[in-house]
Write a protein that binds this DNA or RNA. Structure first.
Length: 278
DNA sequence: GAGACGATTCGG
DNA sequence: CGAATCGTCTCT
């Protein structure tokens, strides 16, 4: 059947990509950490991204004017603990190249960390299933799932079953196209820019992120979706608070695993208590 | 194959 | 605050 064919095709390309990546990794391991070998076109970013993501790192990269998948963040960016990746993603730009070849792009302003077992909020809490498998794949793998007929997107981090949920973006490029994508779902409705991507499923609608197309994409290699640098976010502007809509997660309900940029208009929900405590 | 459920969204 | 709406999982 068609779905079976698709699935096996995807698995095939995934395993090839992971072989390529393993080669790159092993070359890293054998080189001095300060003079790491880096895939062509990634030099500036890779060197910088190996350092602390929350300190100054971006000035040089802003000069980059040619955007392509080869500029995507490399494995070392994603291969870090989930909570750290959730912070590091704030301020970075998510780029989706549409079927028409158009860049749909927004800056990440809100994330949540899901840690895998024993995090009762995580889809991966009880272990690997067909549905959540992407959470267990290499750091930098997209995990897209369906919820109430919508999609949400995560990025796998270091740690078994750990991934970062993208909860909100600030739209940056080709906003009219994003509006059209939202309007497919709710025809006639108008959207202000800050209302386009202020929720995990809204950002998927706006960037045409679907499970079919994006789940299990390797964001270090994909030509459909990847990350680019944006403005530096100062650590003291990051609000650290409880996650949203996980009331079933028992003692994990109150753990501070959500992160957002204070004062950004595109954040889905403010936590005034957490902000007061800053 | 029926039934339940959900890391959401929208409209009233 | 309740309904929508649908893929996935868990039984029967």
């Amino acid at each position: 059947m068609m779905s079976t064919t698709k699935r096996s095709a995807r698995k095939c390309s995934t395993s090839i990509a992971s072989k390529i990546r393993k080669k790159l990794d092993s070359s890293d391991v054998h080189s001095d950490s300060k003079t790491k070998k880096i895939p062509k076109g990634n030099e500036k970013q890779s060197i910088k991204l190996s350092n602390d993501p929350n300190t100054s790192q971006v000035k040089q990269i802003k000069e980059t004017t040619i955007y392509s998948a080869t500029k995507a963040f490399d494995y070392t960016f994603y291969n870090r603990p989930c909570e750290e990746l959730a912070r590091a993603l704030l301020g970075k730009k998510l780029v989706r190249l549409s079927d028409k070849g158009e860049r749909l792009c927004g800056t990440i302003v809100e994330t949540e960390a899901y840690l895998g077992h024993p995090d009762k909020g995580a889809h991966s809490y009880k272990g690997k299933t067909n549905k959540n498998e992407a959470m267990f794949l290499e750091p930098g793998t997209a995990y897209v799932y369906h919820i109430h007929s919508y999609c949400c997107m995560n990025i796998s981090s270091k740690g078994d079953g750990a991934a970062v949920l993208l909860r909100a973006l600030e739209p940056v490029e080709n906003i009219p196209s994003m509006i059209k994508l939202r309007q497919k779902r709710t025809p006639g409705k108008t959207f202000k820019s800050h209302e386009l991507c202020n929720g995990p499923s809204k950002l998927c609608l706006s960037l045409d992120v679907t499970k079919d197309q994006i789940n299990k994409e390797d964001m270090t290699k994909s030509t459909k979706i990847w990350m680019e640098n944006g403005d530096e976010i100062k650590p003291d502007r990051i609000v650290h608070c409880k996650r949203i809509n996980i009331s079933y997660a028992e003692e994990w309900v109150d753990k501070p695993l959500r992160y957002y940029i204070q004062g950004n208009k595109c954040v889905s929900k403010l936590d005034k208590e957490a902000e007061k405590a800053m």
